[in-house]
Amino acid sequence: MWSKSSSVVVAYVAVISFLVCAYMCGYLTPLFAGMNIHSDYNLCCTALILVLGALAYLMGAGLPAVMITGSLGAFIALSWGQEPLIRYLTLSALLFTIGVYGMTTSRNAVRVLMSIELMLNAVNINLVAFSRYVDPGFVRGQIFAIFILTVAAAEAAVGLAIVLAIYRNAQTVDMEKFNLLKW
């Protein structure tokens, strides 16, 4: 029951949480004493988390667990102690990156559309955060977000109709089998 991969995952999660906690309490600062800019600590901690994640993956941990733990740890390390606007922008960048990853790797065409929705939502978070922290008087960011919502609804309808038409013709929604336009 307690396989090797799950023990690797547990060890990885434990190490990352320890690292993040130590970072949040400021114990890691002496490690990076050579640098004198605050953001570089963040980047060093993130690089450490990424290297540990790659190690855990090579040792046999499952990809989802490594990706979730690594990205959450990197996100907290990068955004902790920053201004609220930068926190929101970092979360939005993370969600956008997740969307890019899903869009390029997904096998199912509908999942690609879901990833695109994720990316549109990340952009919306950006705009609403700007309207809260940069432009609170005239909430222009929220109006832009409303237009993006409209375009996203139209995109979802048309995209899913295209997927249905493709399925009716090719009997599959596998992205690797759509090679009609290849030569």
């Binding site: 990809l63 989802p64 990706m67 979730i68 990205s71 959450l72 996100f75 907290i76 609220p84 926190r87 929101y88 979360l91 993370l94 969600l95 997740i98 969307g99 990853y101 899903g102 790797t105 997904s106 999942r111 879901m114 990833s115 994720l118």
Partner: peptide, 21 residues
């Protein structure tokens, strides 16, 4: 607000990975 933000982020990001994986 900070804690609520991190709580929401800790819930949202795993859900987003779940959508993909």
């Amino acid at each position: 607000e900070t804690w609520l933000f991190y709580l929401v982020a800790l819930i949202t990001v795993p859900f987003a990975f779940g959508v993909l994986l």
